[in-house]
Write a protein that binds this DNA or RNA. Structure first.
Lengths: 133, 133
DNA sequence: TTCTCTGCAAATAATTTGCACCCAT
DNA sequence: ATGGGTGCAAATTATTTGCAGAGAA
């Protein structure tokens, strides 16, 4: 009898849906805690993992940093600001990437790809100017 | 007076150069230990970090897994086998990716990108067949 | 000699897990 | 009532750091 909709699970989903940011487990925990004070971080982790497996949310693994979660499960890629660490969604068409695969050596059968851009977001570009770095 | 070429640093570099695999700190530690038995894992970590900063090796951060290091510092991307976790280098031409950036919303200034393919390597494709999975 | 580097142990950070109780179905 | 879910604490995994001594330059 799988998947019970518990109060904590519902709130976790709601809070993730509510924001346009890509929260990590701890940030989400802090938000959910305001509504369910006795919830534990482990529950947040377990639910995010489960919801990811079920394809209800997307796990976003920016290398070397805590995993982040996205309510948007559609195929899309990300861009990461090296200054403030914010992450935004970007759209990259599959057809744009496909030809690149052809250059690949070996006979891998491709099941997916992850394209991550790194850059400086508009807000941080402004700051840089001001600071005269 | 920067960068002393210590015995441990030299061996670490040599062992990394010697292999075509992308070793993580621990795997490299095990190999180096055969030659420098008293070396500590912390030394391996510190050297890999330093060598990365100096641009002598490349750090490869496949999300959610221990960092791996590559003696090849040239611009290249990777493909990761979801079965056996091996990683191979691939070549993707910048020009193939560039157009994709144009679709990006927002005004980020791009400083780099990471393209990771995920798939099943030739060896594992064979295994899958045999196992009749 | 002078500092960087090292080994060791302890600390951190992110995440996972064991266990007994709880509660959605 | 049943078995999936939870809170809590402890365990794990990957990595970093403080410190005193070692050894390249």
């Amino acid at each position: 009898m799988p998947l019970r909709m518990t109060n904590q699970r519902e709130i976790i989903l709601e809070e993730l849906k509510k924001t346009d940011q890509h929260l990590n487990a701890d940030e989400l925990y802090e938000r959910v805690r305001l509504l369910v004070p006795r919830i534990s971080l482990a529950t947040v982790y377990r639910n995010l993992e489960l919801l990811t497996e079920l394809g209800i949310v997307t796990k976003l693994e920016i290398s070397g940093r805590p995993k982040r979660y996205d309510f948007d499960v559609g195929r899309h890629d990300h861009i990461f600001c090296i200054e403030c660490h914010r992450i935004d969604n970007i759209e990259v068409k599959c057809e744009e990437i496909a030809p690149a695969v052809l250059i690949m050596k070996g006979e891998y059968s491709i099941t997916g790809y992850r394209l991550e851009f790194v850059g400086i977001c508009p807000k941080c570009q402004g700051k840089r100017h001001k600071e005269k770095k």
